[in-house]
Amino acid sequence: MSDRCTSKYGRRRPFIVVGCALIILSVLLIGFAADIGGWLGDGEKKTRAIVVFVTGFWFLDMANNATQGPCRALLADLTVLAGLKT
């Protein structure tokens, strides 16, 4: 998808920024899973906190995978550009 992007910020950078935002959200979900579970009315078994944690972990895995491709491609693009300038 980032190969066909025509953003004024570049082909890769918008995908990296969105991926980083999703990673931040995921880490917050994981870190505050117990508190969020409590807000949702969790009992002694912490079932809702576990669901929030697993959901946050799943989003973290997805966001990492979605960010990794554009990051690698950006490094390759920059390397090619540096080689053309010399």
Score class of each variant (00 low, 15 high):
residue 71 C to A: 12
residue 71 C to E: 07
residue 79 T to G: 04
residue 2 S to D: 15
residue 42 D to K: 05
residue 18 V to M: 03
residue 36 I to D: 03
residue 63 A to K: 01
residue 40 L to F: 14
residue 49 A to W: 00
residue 23 I to A: 02
residue 39 W to R: 09
residue 74 L to A: 14
residue 56 G to D: 00
residue 67 T to N: 06
residue 5 C to T: 15
residue 58 W to A: 15
residue 49 A to N: 02
residue 6 T to W: 05
residue 14 P to E: 03
residue 80 V to S: 10
residue 19 G to K: 03
residue 55 T to A: 15
residue 77 D to V: 08
residue 65 N to Y: 08
residue 76 A to R: 13
residue 15 F to H: 14
residue 73 A to K: 14
residue 81 L to N: 08
residue 39 W to E: 09
residue 56 G to N: 01
residue 83 G to W: 03
residue 7 S to Y: 08
residue 62 M to A: 11
residue 44 E to I: 03
residue 30 I to L: 07
residue 45 K to S: 15
residue 8 K to A: 10
residue 86 T to Y: 11
residue 12 R to V: 00
residue 85 K to H: 07
residue 42 D to P: 02
residue 13 R to K: 15
residue 15 F to K: 00
residue 31 G to R: 03
residue 61 D to K: 09
residue 1 M to Y: 08
residue 56 G to L: 00
residue 60 L to K: 04
residue 28 L to P: 02
residue 39 W to D: 08
residue 22 L to M: 10
residue 69 G to V: 13
residue 41 G to T: 09
residue 16 I to L: 09
residue 65 N to L: 15
residue 50 I to E: 06
residue 8 K to L: 14
residue 52 V to F: 05
residue 66 A to F: 14
residue 68 Q to A: 12
residue 47 T to E: 12
residue 2 S to V: 11
residue 50 I to M: 08
residue 68 Q to R: 14
residue 85 K to C: 06
residue 52 V to N: 05
residue 69 G to S: 13
residue 10 G to K: 02
residue 63 A to C: 07
residue 62 M to Q: 11
residue 5 C to L: 12
residue 74 L to I: 00
residue 8 K to V: 11
residue 83 G to S: 07
residue 22 L to V: 01
residue 72 R to T: 06
residue 39 W to C: 05
residue 28 L to Q: 07
